[in-house]
């Protein structure tokens, strides 16, 4: 028998395993228990609890934090499907608070205002699995190294514009493709390039104190890990990606999915499922939109049925990328 209980990756297996149960499904943003119930009845595979949907955060501005624990408790009590919740990038304490509430997965999300300008949470410290967004391949690798149990595109939340999610899918795909023919030495070089981002803080601080030529060595760069340890671990992630020819965990699309056809496009591009934020509850008839997006995700190549479910749906208004603040640029 393969004894998994005593293996070090047991926790990792449970976290990534949880994410696998959402494959082929739609995870919907909700702000109240009432919305959560609508999402569950319409076929959501999980709900994402947050204070305001991205379109409103964009419109109203201000600091976006994790949702009120009272709201989260109400949502937890109202549905039987998993409940996820957004946490600010690098906000260790919000993450522990959400874990203590019994939330099933956290989303360390650029949609909320970042708490730490340098680093993401060390997700290995938590028992609750965490999903993170990524624009590029190196970004996805860093999040996996930090212990993310699931990856999603960042896209551009609250815009109803799918173009950025497409950009991020293509960027990550290309990274995976490039790894295919690399030797181990070349792969290690890539690992070093990806790790460099972590030393930005150390460069800033020690360079200012000691001068750029006498900078401190890169020990304790990220959560007590030195530069070499980070490189080695990132190298291991890269080898796993190279062997599997895909990210070694569940990979969803997010940020700008506004119509059933958008969801179908994401599935056609090889995504494991979709997050829909403002697209549902900013549309004219949320329940109808939710059902239609679920249908299009399940049967993403049944174009006749997608045409049927899309008929007469009035989706949210869309935004062009120029002249808006790009939430995706938050986090490194």
């Amino acid at each position: 028998m393969l004894d998994l209980k005593t293996l070090k990756f047991g926790d990792e297996l449970l976290k990534r395993g949880f994410a696998k149960m959402t494959k082929g499904g739609v995870i919907m943003d909700v702000t109240t228990a009432e919305q959560a119930k609508i999402a569950e009845n319409s076929g959501a595979v999980a709900v994402m609890a947050l204070e305001r949907v991205p379109a409103d955060i964009r419109k109203e501005g201000g600091v976006a934090r994790m949702a009120d624990p009272l709201k989260i408790k109400e949502i937890l009590d109202s549905v039987s499907i998993p409940v996820m919740a957004k946490v600010r990038i690098g906000h260790l304490s919000e993450a522990y608070v959400l874990e203590s509430l019994g939330v099933d997965m956290l989303d360390e999300s650029e949609v909320l205002t970042p708490a730490d300008p340098f680093y993401h949470i060390n997700k290995k410290l938590y028992k609750v699995p965490v999903v993170c967004g990524a624009r590029t391949f190196p970004e996805a690798v860093r999040r996996i190294f930090e212990g993310a149990a699931m990856i999603r595109t960042k896209g551009e939340a609250g815009t109803g514009n799918i173009v950025e999610a497409m950009r991020h899918i293509r960027a990550v795909e290309d990274g995976i493709y490039i790894l295919r023919d690399l030797t181990n030495d070349e792969l290690y070089k890539v690992a070093e390039n990806i790790s460099k981002t972590y030393i930005s803080l150390r460069d800033l601080t020690s360079g200012e104190l000691l001068g750029n030529e006498n900078k401190l060595s890169y020990d304790n760069v990220y959560y007590d890990m030195d530069y070499k340890t980070i490189n080695d671990n990132i190298f291991r992630v890269l080898r796993e990606i190279k062997r599997m020819r895909r990210l070694p965990l569940v990979n969803f699309a997010a940020g700008g999915v506004a119509t059933p056809s958008d969801a179908a496009l994401m599935m056609k591009m090889g995504m494991d499922g979709v997050f829909v934020g403002s697209g549902i509850f900013k549309s004219k008839n949320p329940e109808k939109m939710a059902r239609a997006v679920v249908e299009a995700t399940e049967n993403y190549e049944d174009y006749k049925s997608i045409a049927d479910v899309s008929s007469g749906l009035e989706g949210m208004e869309g935004l062009e990328m120029e002249n808006i603040e790009k939430l995706q640029d938050r986090g490194n």
């Binding site: 028998m1 393969l2 004894d3 998994l4 209980k5 047991g10 297996l13 449970l14 395993g17 949880f18 149960m21 937890l76 998993p82 874990e99 019994g102 939330v103 099933d104 997965m105 028992k127 609750v128 699995p129």
Partner: peptide, 26 residues
């Protein structure tokens, strides 16, 4: 068994099959 943080791995014995590491998720 509760929510995701209560998910667990346990070694069990299965008749006709033998010992097995079982992964319980929600």
């Amino acid at each position: 068994y509760g929510r995701q943080i209560n998910s667990f791995i346990e070694n069990i014995y299965i008749k006709h099959i033998g010992d097995f590491s079982a992964v319980f998720i929600r």
